[in-house]
């Protein structure tokens, strides 16, 4: 299927799914599962939890589908649900465990990258992903949404329940931390 054909296909699926067609919705899940899972993984920094967030986000999307009017792209709408879901899952997890999520996600290897691949791939990406995982959850979310997904500060702030100024402060802190963590990879010695 070409890029031009995907849009009408997706719109047809959306129409059907809005009317309660679960098979059409399954197909939408199939189309968007990788991007949803990737975003969840980058936000929560733990593959297992990211799988739970992705599942929950799709369930919420199914329930909210009648409210989706097509003002934004379906993928943009889904992304917002993923961000909100990862945030609420994180909050309820904090209530259960009374410990920050960054301590729970124990896997130091970047999401989606096995230890062998991380060791052998010369590109900076594996190190970048693992450095992102070293940031605190709240700082990482802002860096991911701004610098990877190019969300506006205002939208980031409203989804994370913080002020725009706080979002900017976290972004600055996160970039500075990444700069320190990735010093060698970014060009190293002065």
């Amino acid at each position: 299927m070409t890029v031009g054909e995907v849009q009408p296909y997706e719109e047809a699926l959306l129409d059907q799914a809005r009317q309660g067609d679960r098979r059409a919705f399954s197909e939408l899940v199939r189309l968007h599962q990788d991007e949803v899972s990737t975003l969840a993984s980058r936000l929560v920094g733990d593959r297992e939890l990211a799988a739970d967030v992705s599942q929950e986000a799709f369930i919420r999307a199914w329930r909210a589908l009648p409210k989706f009017r097509g003002d934004a792209k379906f993928s943009t709408w889904l992304h917002r649900i993923v961000v909100n879901t990862s945030w609420s899952v994180r909050r309820s997890q904090k209530r259960h465990l009374a410990s920050p999520l960054s301590e729970v996600g124990q896997d130091p290897v970047a999401p989606g990258i096995g230890p062998l691949e991380a060791a052998t791939v010369a590109s900076m990406r594996p190190r970048l992903l693992s450095a992102l995982n070293e940031l605190s959850e709240s700082v990482r979310a802002v860096v991911v949404l701004k610098d990877v997904y190019d969300w506006p500060h205002r939208e980031i702030a409203s989804h994370l329940g913080i002020t725009t100024t706080a979002a900017k402060v976290r972004l600055h802190r996160g970039r500075k931390q990444l700069h320190g963590l990735l010093w060698d990879e970014l060009g190293g010695a002065e």
């Binding site: 399954s26 899940v29 199939r30 990788d34 899972s37 799988a51 992705s54 199914w62």
Partner: peptide, 21 residues
């Protein structure tokens, strides 16, 4: 490097569609 991550999509867990269904 951060911005280039946007184009790097990782495969979802193989059971995700089934779990949602």
């Amino acid at each position: 490097e951060l911005s280039s991550l946007a184009d790097h999509i990782e495969p979802a867990p193989s059971t995700l569609v089934e779990r949602v269904e």
